Simulated assay, not measured.
Amino acid sequence: MPDVQGLRLGTFAGMPALLLEAQGARAAIAVHGGHLLSWAPDGHEDVLWLSPALAPAPAAIRGGVPVIWPYFGRQGQGDDVPSHGFARTVRWQVASARRDADGSLRLTLAPPALDGLPLTLRMELHVGATLEQRLVTTNTGDAPVVFTQALHSYFRVSDVHRVRVQGLDGLRFLDKNDGYAEHPQRGDWQLDDARDPGRSDYIYRDAPGRYVLDDAGLDRRIELVTGGSRSLVVWNPGEASAERSSDMGHGAWRGFLCLEAANAGPDRIALAPGATHTLMQQVRVLPRD
């Protein structure tokens, strides 16, 4: 562990974690999966949701910000690999840490290299009143590699039925629950869309990179800005699917909405030898006018 003011090793939700006390916010990052578990700006409750029924390691953590890499779901893979890749179920290491002059904290973490995969990954975090998270992938091989990925953020909400997502009007999305058929988005996203009410598993294409999650119940808006991506995944399983998940908790699905900065579906990254790609998200809490 680097000796940096405001950074220590402890536990969060029963898991070994890096605990951060930065100017403007607190955060926690699990060693398992390099998983951002919590980010709470001063004056606000936690922006991220964690399941009340977490499965023990080595299972993936339900909630926070899972690192989905080097493939999304099982896209381009066979059925004999873990869903959403390997990065979220291995032990990560801290590569560097520092405290900036303004009191914010910067960390770089990395998972171990995977045999037979000519890609390396590191995650860069900047924790303060604004959260910035980057996945940096480098092709160390001698041939191009195609991969998919996501920052699978579970945002805490008062009630998923009462929130709206702005910034999607006029886009087109692929609906997993409809065989990935394409549909137009009209107006803000809401869970109770008349076409497919009560659930959402959409990949928005050619997305602009700025979205606002408006939550009247918590009297706040969460701004999400993304980069290195042309897709946004909006996911909530709905009641029927959630109740079949052993690691979600009864009724807990109402308390989150996933907005995922992603390269998924047709948005794939073809990385040349020696090249690097960065997927980025920036999150901040805005007042509700």
Rank of each mutant, 00 (worst) to 15 (best):
Gly251Arg: 02
His44Trp: 13
Ala53Arg: 01
Pro287Phe: 11
Asp267His: 09
Thr276Trp: 04
Trp189Phe: 15
Gly33Ala: 10
Asp215Arg: 00
Val47Leu: 13
Glu182Ile: 10
Leu131Phe: 14
Asp267Glu: 10
Asp206Pro: 09
Arg230Met: 10
Gln93His: 13
Lys176Val: 07
Pro118Leu: 08
Pro2Cys: 04
Pro237Tyr: 02
Gly63Met: 09
Ala22Leu: 07
Gln166Phe: 08
Ala242Phe: 05
Asp219Pro: 03
Val283Glu: 00
Ala87His: 04
Arg205Asp: 08
His161Asn: 12
Arg99Asn: 11
Phe147Leu: 11
Arg288Cys: 14
Val145Trp: 10
Ala262Pro: 11
Val283Asn: 00
Ala97Lys: 01
Ala95Phe: 02
Ser241Tyr: 11
Ile29Pro: 00
Gly76Leu: 05
Met280Tyr: 10
Gln93Tyr: 03
Arg210Met: 12
Gly43Phe: 10
Arg88Ile: 09
Leu218Lys: 00
Gly251Asn: 05
Ala101Leu: 14
Tyr204Cys: 10
Gly228Tyr: 05
Asp214Ala: 14
Val234Leu: 04
Gly14Ile: 11
Asp219Ile: 03
Val81Gly: 06
Leu105His: 08
Ser104Asn: 08
Ser200Ile: 02
Leu19Thr: 06
Glu223Tyr: 06
Gly141Thr: 05
His250Phe: 09
Gly10Thr: 11
Gln133Lys: 09
Gly251Gln: 06
Val136Asp: 00
Ile61Trp: 09
Thr120Tyr: 01
Pro266Ile: 02
Gly73Tyr: 03
Pro56Ile: 08
Trp39Leu: 06
Thr140Phe: 03
Gln23Ala: 15
Trp92Phe: 12
Gly187Phe: 04
Ala17Val: 07
Pro58Ile: 03
Glu124Val: 15
Gly228Cys: 03
Thr108Leu: 12
Ala194Met: 04
Asp267Lys: 02
Thr11Met: 10
Arg122Lys: 14
Val234Thr: 00
Phe256Lys: 07
Pro52Thr: 02
Leu48Lys: 02
Gln281Trp: 09
Gln75Tyr: 08
Arg195Glu: 13
Val157Ser: 01
Pro287Cys: 13
Pro82Trp: 08
Glu243Tyr: 02
Thr11Gln: 15
Tyr154Trp: 03
Ala264His: 06
Phe86Ala: 06
Arg162His: 13
Ala87Met: 09
Val145Cys: 08
Met15Gln: 14
Ser83Gln: 15
Leu18His: 09
Arg221Ile: 06
Met280Gln: 14
Ala252Lys: 01
Ile269Asp: 03
Leu232Met: 12
Pro237Cys: 01
Gly170Ile: 07
Asp192Phe: 08
Ser158Ala: 15
Pro52Phe: 01
Asp247Lys: 10
Leu7Thr: 06
Val94Lys: 00
Leu109Val: 15
Arg88Gln: 12
Glu132Thr: 15
Tyr211Ile: 08
Val81Ile: 09
Gly64Asn: 07
Gly198Tyr: 09
Gly78Val: 06
Val234Met: 04
Thr278Gln: 04
Ile29Trp: 00
Gln185Ser: 09
Pro16His: 12
Arg8Gly: 09
Arg134Tyr: 03
Glu124Tyr: 03
Ala252His: 00
Ser245Glu: 13
Tyr204Phe: 15
His35Glu: 01
Tyr180Gln: 14
Val31Asp: 04
Leu9Glu: 15
Gly10Glu: 05
Thr89Gln: 13
Ala60Trp: 06
Arg288Trp: 09
Gly6Met: 06
Pro70Ala: 14
